[in-house]
Structures are given as structure tokens and as C-alpha cells.
């Protein structure tokens, strides 16, 4: 599984990345978590507003920090 966390590097984006990292560890799934902070790349992914989480090319959430439960549901 390939997880991309999009965000230029503000507080919310860091929090999103942290939540995703923690949940990946907790669920024990095989996944790479990549932080995307380049604006062009973010736009290429089809993401409008950050922070956003993209899993295997599918946009899971846009414009807010996901809760731990939500992340867990996506990666399981």
C-alpha cells in the first residue's frame, strides 16, 4: 500500500502525517508513507485543499486532519 500525505508543511499537515504513521504501525500493515509537499505534485494528484491523504491513488480525505478511526478504516 502506498500512502501519500499532501501538505506544504503546516501544523495540520504534520499532524495528519503523524496520525497516519501511528495508525500504520498500530494496524501492522505493509505500507509506505510519503510526504508530498511540492505544490505542483499535490495538484497533479488531484488534491484541492490540504492536508490530504491519498492511498494507492485514491483520495481519501481533503482539507482536514483525519481522525485515527478514519485512517484505520482506510488502511485495513
Amino acid at each position: 500500500m502506498e500512502i501519500k500525505v499532501c501538505g506544504p508543511g503546516c501544523r495540520k499537515c504534520h499532524e495528519t502525517e503523524r496520525v497516519v504513521q501511528e495508525m500504520v504501525e498500530e494496524a501492522g500493515v505493509q505500507a509506505t508513507v510519503e510526504k508530498v509537499s511540492d505544490f505542483n505534485e499535490i495538484a497533479q494528484l488531484g488534491v484541492f485543499s490540504t492536508p490530504a491523504v491519498v492511498i494507492d491513488g485514491q483520495i481519501k480525505c481533503v482539507g482536514k486532519v483525519p481522525t485515527r478511526k478514519e485512517v484505520l478504516a482506510w488502511i485495513k
Partner: peptide
């Protein structure tokens, strides 16, 4: 920090 991503998205 949401302004620039939104700008490039729009």
C-alpha cells in the same frame, strides 16, 4: 497555509 495549495489547485 491553506492558501497556496488551494491557489495551485484552482
Amino acid at each position: 497555509c491553506t492558501i497556496l495549495p488551494l491557489f495551485s489547485g484552482i
